[in-house]
Each structure stands twice: as structure tokens, then as C-alpha cells.
């Protein structure tokens, strides 16, 4: 069975961000971009499936600006067999910027231009899900693994939308994934064919276990695994390996299919909290909670 893993490149989780003075987006205080932590977990799970002999091939895919290829190299170094990059051409980026800037009230123009110029992908989850659906079809994937959310847009949508577009079952927020084998695959060296995925999901109030007929879409929660470190030799080897470029047209998609439906009007700082005070002891804390804050 072939496993497809979707990868996004984001500002590193440990790097503080602040709103740009023109309110058109955020900027990172350090120029460090990394694989989205949830994508890393999804990829680690796919590589483990291969190591256990249940996945025949792991294909890392990413759709976005050219620099997303660097993150696909990291994916190869972590153990992906192949990497496919769906580039955003200048035409697509221009279309995105025009859509974001067009037809609105004041202050809207900056948003699109900023998205096009910044390190962020201007794509929104519906566009990404359409590209992933086309890739899943082309590759004949039996399982698509994604992170549960990207830590930049915090949308938590792409996996669910992909499953909806494909008409496949979904298990989101997975903290455990087991593949149940349906029989040995034919041919020498082929991995055993998996029939169903048994997934433990993190839900409000506890855990839930689902059994999904394959093909299916699974999104990874933090607790699914601990991703391995990438070694320097692995990274050096990965640098020499090719990354396939699959333009939108080759997947039967047009720029309009990935155009954003939502224009980013502005980005603002969260409301600042009034400065707090230090208290000298528990007695003072309780007194002030009663008398000032009135919460006790």
C-alpha cells in the first residue's frame, strides 16, 4: 500500500512572531522555517508503517512556493521514498493577489500583495485539499496522512476537506494508528495488503476508537509519536535526490481551483492585557481576588 503524506512549511514553532506595522500579516523575529510539527508526526507515522512492512512506499507531497522544496528534502531525509512538489506559478500567485485585493473596501489591497511576497503559502485549505485529492488519485494511495492543523493558519481543515472531496472515511486527531492486514500482497517483496485502519482519536472528554475501511484519510495529533531526528548523512543523501515537480495542469487543475475564497483584510495584535501585580503571599492573593477581582 502506498501512503501519501502532506507536508507544509511554516515559521518554526519556537520563533516568536509579531504583527507587521502595515497590518498585512505577521513577521518572524528570526528567519527560521521548519516542517509544521503535525506534518512531522504524520510523516514519522508513515515511515514507521513502512518499517513495519505494512506500507510499500511513502510519498511526501507539498503544494506551495518554491522554498517548500527544502522541507520536502527534510521529508526525504526522514525516510520518505519520493517527494512531489506542486509549485505555485507566478500566474497563480498573481491571481491570488488580485483576488485578495479586488473589489473590497479600504485597507484590503495590502493583504494579497503581502501574502504573495511573504514566506507564507497564499493557498487556503480547500485549494490544498483539491491538489491533494488529485495527487491521491494519481498515486493510487491507500492512506493519506496529514497533520491535524498547521501552526500558522491554525485552520484544522485540510484533512477533513480532502476526505470529503475523495469520499473516503476520515479519522482526525489520531493518537494511535494500527493497520489490520487483509492478506499478503502478491508478488515478491510486496508489503502485506492492509484492509482497514484502526485509529484512536483524541476527542473532548477522552478517546474514541474507529475502524476505517481503506482508502482513508488520517490526521495526526501530538500524541501519535515522537518524530525522529534527521541525521546529517541522511540530509546529505537527501540533497542529491530528485524532487518531482507536478504543476497544477499536470494534475488536471486550473489556477481558479486553488484561488482563495477568503481575502485577508488585515491582521492585528491581540488586545494587550493590563499590567498585573506581584503579590507577597497567599493571604494577600486571596484578599485581592475577593476584594479587587471579585472572583472568590
Amino acid at each position: 500500500m502506498k501512503v501519501l503524506v502532506a507536508i507544509k512549511r511554516v515559521i518554526d514553532y519556537a520563533v516568536p512572531v509579531r504583527v507587521r506595522p502595515d497590518k498585512a500579516g505577521v513577521e518572524a523575529l528570526l528567519p527560521k522555517l521548519s516542517m509544521n510539527p503535525f506534518c512531522e508526526i504524520a510523516l514519522e507515522e508513515a515511515v514507521r508503517l513502512k518499517e513495519r512492512g505494512v506500507a510499500a512506499e511513502v510519498v511526501a507531497v507539498s503544494v506551495g512556493p518554491p522554498h517548500f522544496q527544502d522541507t520536502l528534502r527534510t521529508a526525504l531525509a526522514m525516510g520518505a521514498d519520493r517527494a512531489v512538489h506542486v509549485p505555485l506559478t507566478a500566474e497563480v500567485v498573481a491571481l491570488q493577489a488580485a483576488a485578495a485585493a479586488g473589489g473590497g473596501e479600504g485597507g484590503a489591497g495590502a493583504g494579497g500583495a503581502a501574502a504573495a511576497a511573504s514566506s507564507e503559502s497564499p493557498l487556503q485549505p480547500l485549494g490544498v485539499a483539491r491538489v491533494l485529492a488529485a495527487l491521491a488519485g494519481r498515486e493510487g494511495a491507500g492512506l493519506v496522512l496529514l497533520g491535524k492543523q498547521a501552526i500558522d493558519d491554525d485552520c484544522n481543515q485540510t484533512g477533513q476537506m480532502l476526505a470529503g472531496l475523495l469520499g473516503w472515511p476520515q479519522a482526525t486527531f489520531a493518537s494511535k494508528l494500527e493497520l489490520e492486514l487483509g492478506g499478503k500482497g502478491s508478488g515478491g517483496g510486496a508489503a502485506a495488503a492492509a484492509a482497514a485502519a484502526r485509529v484512536t482519536r483524541e476527542v473532548d472528554g477522552g478517546l474514541e476508537v474507529l475502524s476505517l475501511p481503506l482508502p482513508a484519510v488520517v490526521t495526526a495529533d501530538l500524541r501519535l509519536n515522537t518524530p525522529r531526528f534527521v541525521t546529517l548523512p541522511a540530509m546529505m543523501r537527501a540533497k542529491k535526490r530528485p524532487i518531482e515537480s507536478a504543476p497544477l495542469e499536470s494534475l488536471g487543475l486550473s489556477p481558479a481551483d486553488v484561488a482563495p475564497a477568503l481575502a485577508l483584510l488585515r491582521v492585528e495584535e491581540p488586545p494587550a492585557r493590563a499590567a498585573g501585580t506581584r503579590v507577597g503571599g497567599v493571604e494577600e492573593l486571596v484578599r485581592r481576588l475577593r476584594e479587587e477581582a471579585r472572583v472568590l
Binding site: 515559521i11 516568536p16 512572531v17 509579531r18 504583527v19 505577521v26 473590497g104 484590503a108 487556503q124 485549505p125 480547500l126 485549494g127 501552526i151 500558522d152 493558519d153 491554525d154 485552520c155 484544522n156 481543515q157 476537506m161 482563495p260 475564497a261 477568503l262 481575502a263 485577508l264 483584510l265 488585515r266 491582521v267 492585528e268 495584535e269 491581540p270
Partner: peptide, 29 residues
């Protein structure tokens, strides 16, 4: 395209939602 985790509804088509772990609020339309 859905809009998730909205903290403010500006009008029928315009919403405010947190991004970057709540370090910024995006107004989308």
C-alpha cells in the same frame, strides 16, 4: 472554504479568527 474558530462576526461575510497560536487576529472576508 470554511472559516473555523471565529472569535468575532463582523458581518455576513467578514470574520475575525486567531492565527499563529493567538499571537495575531486575522480579519477575513
Amino acid at each position: 472554504q470554511p472559516v473555523t474558530d471565529v472569535v468575532k462576526i463582523v458581518d455576513d461575510n467578514t470574520f475575525v479568527r486567531p492565527i499563529y497560536a493567538g499571537n495575531a487576529f486575522a480579519t477575513v472576508q
